[in-house]
Design a protein around this nucleic acid. Structure first.
Lengths: 232, 232
DNA sequence: CCGCTTTCTTGATACTTTCTTGATGCCGAT
DNA sequence: ATCGGCATCAAGAAAGTATCAAGAAAGCGG
């Protein structure tokens, strides 16, 4: 069960890495660590973490450039750490797309509070559980639980990721590229076949008549759309 | 957004108010100022600003409590200012629902960068979906959904592309070449036949009397025009 | 560390929708 | 009447989609 959020830490200083590993990985979050910007970019694309903590002063590339690259395909929250508290650096990072900026030395408590704030925002929820309903289907994104006719339905990690994206955009059409990007990452945006396999899987598990879907609708040539009771 | 974003400033210190008024109200934003927490809450509810800047050290009420109250009904971004840089205060404010925390004394450049970051984020989510209406027709370009008499109408990719161009230029005549260019690309600008086929399709699906179109009008020798209720 | 189970990836095939294209008829203008 | 621009219908071609299934990979428990 992958319920704890995964954070990606991009930081070259081993001391700080150890420090944050101790502070963050202790139950609350899973932590994935990188030492270089290149590796960080690759990991961000491959693992699709829920949040990125980025040290601006990397040896191999400019931190602001890294932010821009990530922002070219994703809205993952990025919290920047930096030894330089210079105002111009902060502005550059924030305007490049960073969500928050923390100067070193920092207090862990504050950092974790800012992480919570960023995750809360990106979840799009006040913190209390929002439940999506569509006919006999019930989805609780927080608890990571899906019910059909009140019965719990087991979903694999990818199935749930896909469902989550659909639920978050419920009512509107999502393009195949967008789904592929958000579920498999930017390197798989041509593998539309994955989408078909997993959409069929979701329908098989959640639709009454998988062959005649009432909620997981296909928009041929475009993408898919999840229609539920709460229409916006 | 058509007009400049409105910010609500809740701050008892007249000096800082004057300072921020000078920095923020100069063209970029509209600024609404309050001296007390009570007034701030009232203004937040009444004016629905796009962002709140809140001084934690208000004379009449606890800032953290104010954050909680606002959060009980709204997700407006809140940036906290505070003279106390104490970690526990920051954590309390962020966990109460604040989006960001800036300690005094602060640099305007950083504050405005953080404001931009917060506004950018909040702009992304709810979707400023403007809906085009024309008689019984309703077009939501964001959701990619079209209704006629409240009933959903399915459009193929090309049909929707064509409709989108028409909606974006609603009220004006669009030449055939322009439509062909925007829908099929610059290599098909001579295929006026495509246009006739698909325009007929749109009329068949959306007009009450396809033979006597009321909204999808032909301008002989020139192109087409979509007339609706909201002109822009 | 190994074997077992679950999940992911990939391929093959049948099926559906959509696009393109040609034929035909209408209407107004010359 | 004839011609050019427009509307409509229809059918084959092309593109896109659903589903099954099996080997590969990854995760889990002992």
């Amino acid at each position: 069960m992958l319920s704890t959020p995964e954070l990606l830490l991009i930081e070259d200083d081993p001391g700080i890495r150890r420090f944050l590993r101790a502070s963050l990985a202790a139950g609350q979050y899973r932590l994935c660590e990188c030492e270089t910007g290149q590796d960080g970019l690759a990991q961000a694309a491959a693992r699709q973490p829920e949040l990125i903590i980025l040290d601006l002063g990397l040896p191999d590339m400019d931190g602001v450039a890294l932010i821009r690259q990530v922002r070219s395909w994703s809205q993952i929250p990025i919290i920047v750490l930096s030894a330089q508290g210079q105002e111009s650096v902060k502005i550059a990072a924030l305007d490049a797309g960073a969500d928050d900026f923390v100067s070193k030395p920092f207090a862990v408590g504050e950092l974790t509070a800012r992480i919570r704030a960023a995750l809360r925002r990106s979840a799009g929820l006040p913190g209390g559980g929002q439940i999506f309903r569509a006919g006999r289907i019930e989805v609780d994104l927080d608890k990571r639980v899906v019910l059909a006719d009140g019965e719990e339905v087991h979903l694999t990690p990818i199935e749930f990721k896909l469902l989550r994206v659909l639920v978050r955009h419920a009512g509107r059409v999502i393009t195949q590229r967008q789904l592929l990007n958000e579920v498999w990452g930017p390197h798989h945006m041509e593998q539309a076949h994955y989408l078909r396999v997993y959409m069929a899987q979701l329908r098989r598990k959640l639709e009454v008549e998988p062959a005649r879907p009432r909620h997981f609708l296909t928009e041929p040539g475009v993408g898919y759309r999840l229609v539920g009771d709460l229409a916006c």
